[in-house]
Every structure is written in structure tokens, then in C-alpha cells.
Design a protein around this nucleic acid. Structure first.
Lengths: 191, 191
DNA sequence: ACTAATTATGTGAGCGCTTACTCACTCATG
DNA sequence: CATGAGTGAGTAAGCGCTCACATAATTAGT
């Protein structure tokens, strides 16, 4: 790794940790520099602004996660298997870099509006999978956004609870339950 | 209503709207004053600080919601009916004052740590209900926090989607689906 | 291979600006 | 005339960001 890239990575990691611990707005560029052991001005050799640094961090993870989820689901034929693949992939991503994951989860509402429309999108992947499953009659038809929200919520809220420290251990330990639960949600019959 | 209380209410409402539109950190006291049609100094006749105003808003809603959920659930005998009562109560609260609801939902992670341990707590109500249902064998035993998170996630993520504008109409229109889905999640058998 | 020139990277004091909050004052009410 | 409510210019502190300078890395010229 080049020296400059190493510096850039250190800035990103320091920023990430502070953004999660406090928040983007409450983290100062001085704190980031201190945590990364560089001068404040150095941040601006690598990023045009604090806001852009925060956005870069989000978008990179957002896009990469979307692609990973899509690749994980693609080879499987039925909805049940696709769900499990998506859930497992998501949980493993979370466990692999929990700080980055928590940052992504807690700052969705701040950055989601700034995701380019054509960029890969984790939510779009899930929507698409559910859409096809409804079309093929694997699960009852229902508003896709509503179904997707309910199914995604099962995993996301559990992850949120883990951020709050309400339970321990890797998320991936519960892939089986999450998959069963998401499947159950999508299988709910129209009343 | 006294004039002073009216002023206080106007400050709270103006702050709420701005806190949701931007965020607490990005909303200035000047903006709040402008939106409430009062002088900036007046805010400090009613609140010791901007942060305390934000916290007050959160805690009042948090406590009242917890009590409402508890009262809604109490008269019903079985888990199935308790779930529906809780879901309906929650959705109706959301629909009744969407701005306040969105504020509460989007700022949980910022304020949850500051809720007094003995204060009424929406999450504790749900935990308790699930706990009893597991004890009586209505649903399979499992880590309560995990079950609660998954069940709560169904409704919360849907609500979040509504905040993002991904679907329209009142939340309460989907009480049936949410209840069925939460019940299905809690009924998932141990694998 | 050596040097000179150019560019990339790192530094931190300091700038302009915004912020939350204060306070001396006015006014309305009982 | 005592008190509580409202005012808004003012203040100190903190913010993101810049820039003149130092140094390291890369390239060009001979």
C-alpha cells in the first residue's frame, strides 16, 4: 500500500469510528485528525469536505453491499433459498466490519436521498426478488414496498438491537431464524 | 390555554418540524425562533438548552406511547389479541401526529441511552408480553430480545419506509398485515 | 547516474463565520 | 409596582476550511 493511500485509509477509519460513536455533525475535523494521527489540513488533501468524506464512506459500502447481496441471491432458484442467501450475506457483512455496518445502518436516513438512482441498491435487490416471487405465485401478492419493509425489518431491527447492546454474539448466528421469520412474513395470506 | 403555555407549545412544534426536516444538530435556535414567530431569547425562558428541548420532546412521547401500548394490550387475554392491540395502538399514534412520530423513530439511537431506567418504555412492554407468551407456551421459547426485535422490526421498518415516502396512506391501514406478520415471526419454530 | 525541476503529500496557525446562549431592557398583567 | 414573559443585539467559543510553507516522491534533462 502506498503511503498516501494508507493515510487516506487511516482518515476514513478514524472518521468512521467517531461518526458511529457520536454522529457526523457532532464529530469535528480536529477530532478526526487527532484520532488518525495526522494534521487537520491533511484531511483536505484526500477529501473535499467532511460531508463528502461521510458520503463517500456511506456510498461505497452501500454499493458494495448491494452487489454482494445480488450475487448471493442470483444462483438460487426459489424465494426461500434466495432469502436465506441474502440474509446470510447481510449478516456476514455486518459481522465482518461492525463499525462500518453500524455507520451504514444508523445514517441511512441522512444519505439515502443522495444515492444516485442508477447506483446498485440493497433495497432494490430485495424488492426485485420479492417482486418476482409474487409474480410467480410463490408468495401472495401484496404491495411490494410493504412486504419488503416488513421482511427487511426483521433483520434490520435485530441488527439495531445489537448496536444498542441488547444482545451479544455475531448476527450470523441467527441466520436460520431471520430467514424463517422473513419467509413467514412474506407468506402471510391476504385477509 | 395561558399565553405562556401557548408560546411554549409553539416553540415545541416549530422545533419538532425542523428537527425532523433536518436534524437536531443541524437546526439552529434562530430557525426555531423564526418558525415559532418569537425571539431567540424566548426559547430560554421555557427550556434550559436546545438539547434539553430535544430530549423533552423525545421523552414525553416515549413515556406516553409506552403507557398507551400497555393499556391497549392489558385487557386482551392471548398473545394474538395483544399483538393486534399493540400494533393498532402504535399505528394510530403514528397517524395521529406523524411529525412527532417520525421524530421519535428517527432519533431513537440518539436519546434511548438517556431514558431513565424506571421510566415507562415501549420496548419493555413488548418484551414483557412476549416473555409471558413464551412462559405459557403460546409461542416457542427463544431469546426474548431477538424475538422482540424481529417482531417490532416488521412495523418499525414499514413506518420508516413511510417516512422515506416509499408508500402512502395511513399506517393503520395495514394493522392486519402487521399483526399477522408479527405473529408469524413469533411463531417460527426452533430449528 | 547525478541533478534539477516538478509534483504530491503533510503541516498547523489562523481566518471568517456560525453557533448556542446571555442579559439589560421593555412591556403586559393583576 | 412586582412579577413573569418576551426581546434581540451582543459574546465567547468552536467550527470547517485555507494557505504559505516544508518535505518527500517522481520525473526530466544531460
Amino acid at each position: 500500500m502506498g503511503k498516501a493511500e494508507d493515510t487516506k485509509a487511516r482518515i476514513e477509519r478514524a472518521a468512521l469510528v467517531l461518526f458511529v460513536a457520536r454522529s457526523v455533525a457532532e464529530t469535528t475535523t480536529r477530532e478526526i485528525a487527532l484520532a488518525a494521527s495526522i494534521a487537520e489540513g491533511t484531511i483536505y488533501r484526500h477529501f473535499p469536505s467532511k460531508e463528502q468524506l461521510a458520503l463517500d464512506l456511506f456510498l461505497r459500502h452501500h454499493g458494495a453491499l448491494a452487489e454482494a447481496l445480488d450475487e448471493a441471491q442470483r444462483p438460487h432458484p426459489g424465494l426461500r433459498a434466495k432469502i436465506e442467501a441474502i440474509v446470510r450475506c447481510y449478516c456476514e457483512w455486518a459481522d465482518r466490519d461492525w463499525t462500518l455496518f453500524a455507520y451504514h445502518l444508523l445514517n441511512q436516513h441522512a444519505f439515502l436521498a443522495k444515492v444516485p438512482d442508477d447506483a446498485p441498491n440493497p433495497v432494490a435487490v430485495v424488492h426485485d426478488v420479492i417482486d418476482r416471487a409474487m409474480a410467480s405465485g410463490e408468495v401472495p401478492r401484496r404491495d411490494v414496498a410493504l412486504s419488503a419493509a416488513a421482511a427487511i425489518g426483521v433483520v434490520l431491527q435485530a441488527a439495531t438491537y445489537k448496536i444498542y447492546g441488547r444482545f451479544e454474539g455475531p448476527l450470523a448466528a441467527h441466520v436460520g431464524f431471520f430467514s424463517d421469520a422473513a419467509w413467514a412474513v412474506l407468506s402471510v395470506k391476504a385477509s
